[in-house]
Nucleic acid binder design. Structure first.
Lengths: 357, 357
DNA sequence: ATGTCACATGAATCCACCT
DNA sequence: TAGGTGGATTCATGTGACA
């Protein structure tokens, strides 16, 4: 399916603009919604300076109700334009993240993780009345419970000292050269660091995917998407921000497609059956396989099954059987002998796979 | 005002029991309510052993609506029994924290901070499908917008190497000797570490204050309160938990009020992965890395892995691969070129680390 | 006593594909 | 769509056996 408006910034209110997009046309939505909605949106009442407690609480309730209505409206549209296996990221602070998270769940999204962006250089709390607000929260959710969102597990692990990536990410704020300036002042009050979007997009999209950002601002999502070989659709109602984003993205040089591809996952490699090892002559019928400690021995049969005195069947079933386990990965459990040493039969599968290229 | 039931554990449903308490009688509420986990079938580790998930009856709810109704009911009572300047702490994970936070706001509490408990030793993700769930979230809120909750800013700062205490707390899980056992098995599936409560109570209560915990469990709140010279009121409906808590608290020796009990360790040095060099723009996708003698060349990929014609993966795996070695420290093996000279990528990691201080 | 290694375990919404 | 099967998948820490 082709996505309209690919790699461009649409002007207008994101709810209205999303309504003009077809169903199921984007792979990912990344959203950094405002939480300090001012009068312009017509969503909150004015902040009365001298009110009694009752009115104060009522006012607070009204504001929350209006914010919730706004949140549900844009999230519903975002969900509609997501593909079945699409996913959503939203980011917020304690002012709005609980309302966002609640709406995400109520609309049928299925949360995969919440992630905390721990800031290396947060703004201190000057008045000494609270803890320094040193983090923001992101929510990663599939379109629904059945969705299987993209997750480049092996890339993340390899990039993280071969240890799986955790839900806490320590990253600096957007400062210095990266921070867009207009006349010496910051162009946008809450510009997100590209490193944050880099991690989001390289973790949960593939090259060529389309990422929608309904609160595009100065276009960090678009800039990183372009650099990583992903497509973006931005929505922004403030022309100043949109113009700044366009200029910024125009200057981005995309990575070579070869460099943008995530590490291939074993789950997506071509399937090689155990029988192919015998067919190809890598293992002879009648040869013996051993568990790592040589405690269990099985005989290879010509039809691609294993045989012990007690168990017959696939390498997995027999491996589970001899261990009295519920399941077993026969490729790593069973070993063949060569020059007196044992090696997993998985290494023979690799030989077959190499021959398939 | 005297508080009834001080330093004791009340048996029963927390909503009913709280209704029997007078208005405005406690200084702090700490609550660790059921998380409504909604786990699927069984989960096994890669070594085939079973994961002991939380499948207790008390964590089961019909729907989000049922959970929300329960949440609002106990929070409303908690708010009623709080003094005007009293405060609330709740803890949860992404399964329930957004619903908790919403209810907290809707009922008129005023959030001071959200705090993330970053776990040093979380359970990994065993199937490689998500980020390791390595944190939980706490919300600290005043009874209402006008409340001025206790906050021991200066003692926190002094105990934190004279740096302002932040909203991210790095602490280990409750394991080892601290974990209560019954017949060799854990007494409670979700016992919280005392270090966490220590930080909560020393930060936001004064000696002599009364702390109510409506989900007392095995009484971590009571144990820490007693040690720190605070009073507690616990509510627990499971007699086994309540009994265990009573025995535990009886053995606690209160600290001498003069003693500044040591606060748990400061935050650990976060891991810096090779991926962060690319995320931060220190290395561009497609740039080349060399071994010291330029015999081997690898290309940097956007996902934080390396690629030669033969090997793909982490800097360490690829370094080992090209040398045909069992292992390799990629940080010192791989070099980048600058002004015609080679420098180890470890020097770029130092740049990242400097930015994190 | 000291070091090594095997083993256990923690609030977990934890698979993909084919028939 | 429900069920069956192939086969992919873990980090930090504490305890205890054993050399």
């Amino acid at each position: 399916m082709t996505t309209p408006y690919k790699d461009s910034i649409l002007r207008g209110d994101c709810i209205e603009v999303m309504k003009s997009l077809p169903d199921a046309c984007v792979d990912l939505v990344f959203a950094d919604p405002p939480y300090n909605l001012q009068l312009g949106g017509g969503l909150t009442r004015p902040d009365q300076s001298d009110v009694d407690g009752v009115t104060d609480e009522w006012d607070q309730f009204e504001s929350f109700a209006a914010y919730d209505a706004f949140t549900k409206a844009w999230l519903a549209e975002a969900r509609r334009v997501l593909k079945p296996n699409g996913a959503l990221w939203v980011i917020g602070s304690y002012h709005n993240i609980f309302r966002l998270g609640c709406a995400v769940q109520d609309l049928g999204f299925w949360i995969q993780n919440d992630v905390v962006w721990v800031k290396t250089n947060p703004m201190p709390n000057f008045r000494g009345t609270r803890f320094a607000n040193a983090h923001e929260t992101l929510i990663w959710a599939g379109r629904d419970k059945k969705s299987r969102p993209t997750f480049n597990y092996h890339s993340l692990k390899a990039a993280n000292e071969d240890v799986q990536m955790r839900s806490d990410w320590t990253l600096p704020l957007c400062t210095g050269q990266e921070r867009l300036k207009t006349g010496g002042k910051k162009t946008h009050p809450t510009q997100k660091p590209e490193a944050l979007l880099h991690r989001v997009l390289s973790a949960t999209t593939n090259p060529g995917d389309v990422v929608l950002d309904p609160f595009f601002g100065t276009g960090t999502t678009g800039a990183v998407a372009k650099r990583l070989g992903r497509h973006f659709v931005g929505i922004e109602r403030d022309e100043t921000y949109a113009k700044a984003a366009e200029a910024r993205i125009a200057s981005i040089v995309p990575a070579d497609p070869e460099d943008a591809a995530p590490l291939p996952s074993p789950r997506r490699q071509p399937r090689v059956g155990f029988g192919q090892l015998i067919e190809s002559g890598l293992l002879a019928p009648g040869s013996k396989l051993y568990c790592p400690k040589r405690k269990h021995i099985a005989r290879v049969k010509a039809d691609g099954t294993l045989d012990t005195s007690l168990h017959q069947g696939s390498i997995h079933k027999v491996g589970a059987g001899v261990q009295n386990a519920a399941s077993c990965n026969g490729w790593t459990f069973w070993h063949y002998e060569e020059a007196g040493k044992l090696a997993p039969i998985d290494s023979l599968r690799s030989v077959i796979r190499r021959g398939m290229n």
